[in-house]
């Protein structure tokens, strides 16, 4: 087959020229001794549009609705800055990783930590409780829970061990900060001190366990993650 306009040889099984769309004519090929590649047939699948805009608009809508609700109930917009912080946190730590299929438990735990802490902060303000204690206790509880989950996951899933390293470091820093804050606050509730000590201790145990399980691989992972 041949295209009368483009003057090129065409495959025997096509009726139109792929270059100009003209009907192909039967003719002797000018190039011989070479076979066609015959690409496999495939079914075109429409591209699934990115839903990030939908998620983003949804987040903004939630933010606006909560702000309006607060304005309606209290006549003020006192918690707007916290909400403004909460929405991007949930977006960055929970929604976006999920969209990218990076379903690491660490992402969800960090997201949960920020969300619960902010909610506690909000509730504390509404109930007129001392802010630092409420927030710090909440963060300590969540940190403890998150580190426990990571610890269990480290024991069960061998593949996830090295991936937990970064999250574990974040929780370690958080645990240390909470413990330091609890010690500094002279009249802190003993439960709060115990909780933050447990969070810090479990983070350390987790890190040591990870080091024992992974050995040199953990050091390599650290080097890779932080290479400059």
């Amino acid at each position: 087959m041949k295209c009368p306009d483009c003057q090129v040889d065409l495959n025997e099984n096509v009726s139109r020229c792929p270059l100009c769309g003209k009907l192909a004519e039967t003719s002797e090929p000018v190039i011989r001794d070479v076979s066609y590649q015959d690409y496999p047939a495939y079914e075109y699948r429409r591209f699934q549009r990115n839903l990030s805009l939908v998620y983003f608009c949804g987040s903004v809508a939630v933010f606006v609705a909560l702000a309006l609700l607060e304005r309606l109930l209290t006549g003020r917009l006192h918690y707007l800055p916290y909400l403004a912080f909460l929405v991007p946190c949930v977006w960055a730590l929970v929604i976006r990783p999920r969209m990218n299929r990076s379903l690491s438990p660490g992402n969800f735990l960090l997201g949960a930590l920020f969300t619960i802490s902010l909610l506690l902060f909000w509730v504390g303000r509404m109930q007129r409780l001392p802010m630092t204690s409420t927030l710090a206790s909440g963060v300590a509880i969540v940190t403890l829970g998150a580190v426990s989950v990571l610890f269990l996951d480290t024991l069960v899933h061998k593949k996830n061990r090295e991936r937990h390293l970064v999250f574990l470091l974040i929780f370690l820093v958080l645990g240390a900060a909470e413990f330091a804050a609890a010690l500094r606050e002279g009249h802190a509730h003993p439960a709060y001190v115990v909780l933050s000590a447990c969070a810090l201790g479990l983070s350390l145990i987790n890190l040591i366990a990870l080091g024992a399980f992974c050995g040199r691989a953990l050091w390599e992972e650290l080097r890779a993650r932080f290479h400059f």
Binding site: V8, N13, V14, S15, L19, P29, I31, Y42
Partner: peptide, 12 residues
């Protein structure tokens, strides 16, 4: 001289 082939057939 040239010979041309396309990976997508017109019906696809």
């Amino acid at each position: 001289r040239a010979r041309v082939e396309c990976n997508i057939r017109e019906e696809e």
